[in-house]
Amino acid sequence: MLQLQDIAITFNEGTPDEKKALQSIKLELKKGDFVTIIGSNGAGKSTLMNVISGNLTPDVGEISINNKQVTHLPEYKRSAFIGRVFQDPMAGTAPSMTIEENLAMAYARNKKRKLRRGVTAKRKVLFREYLETLNLGLEDRLTAKVGLLSGGERQALSLLMATFTDPDILLLDEHTAALDPSRAELITQLTYDIVEKFDLTTLMVTHNMQQALDLGNRLFMMDKGQVIFDVEGQEKQALTIEKLLHEFQRIRGEQFESDKAVLG
């Protein structure tokens, strides 16, 4: 489904600020894989997401989705296959437009946009059905401006918008980090349900180790631009936070910067 071959990217090469953000990343995701990614700040998690989404072009290496080369496909073209939810709840929706208009835009993600009405009566029925699955009562507020919604509601809407057109890849970049614990819990549950329902191939970055252990069938630990630990299936189910920290120490020979990661 998703293949990355020897991806490397260096920022500010040849200056004192040089940073090897990704070093020969090689990975392959199968259809339906749900990968959680952990690692301290600067480990390259977000850079990895940006390289996959097309926001950044790697210096070397190839990316393919569904056996199709996408390495040099610009971001807007690549997003026909990729759904994304950002950390900032404000980032995934257009605030001055209504809920139905936002959904209509998301609905056109994998189609060609035409000069026909974006919100039709038929689509409204569909949007209402999808919104009902969120259990937030948004289905009765189709014509409300999204800017009036709370952060949690907006993030739930972003998640729905990113997923209801069945993308090949779903990228979640710490999408619960900016929410209060109960809202974060709600979004986490929704993520689980939606990924399950559509059988989405998902990459989720999180700072929350427990969340990384609870969700998904596969886990990457990243450090200094490399994936240093990759477990899946049974082995992942058996993992605990202690084991993860221990693993990090064993591989790196140093303490995990636990002050920079949320352990809970």
Binding site: Y76, T93, A94, M97, A108, R113, K114, R116, A162
Partner: peptide, 25 residues
């Protein structure tokens, strides 16, 4: 209010968002 028009409005509202929904801003 068309699909193209919605994308145009979103370009003025939240460019990052509409680019992630495959619109050429």
């Amino acid at each position: 209010k068309t699909e193209v028009g919605l994308a145009l409005r979103a370009t003025g509202d939240n460019q990052k968002m509409i680019r992630s929904f495959s619109a050429n801003t």
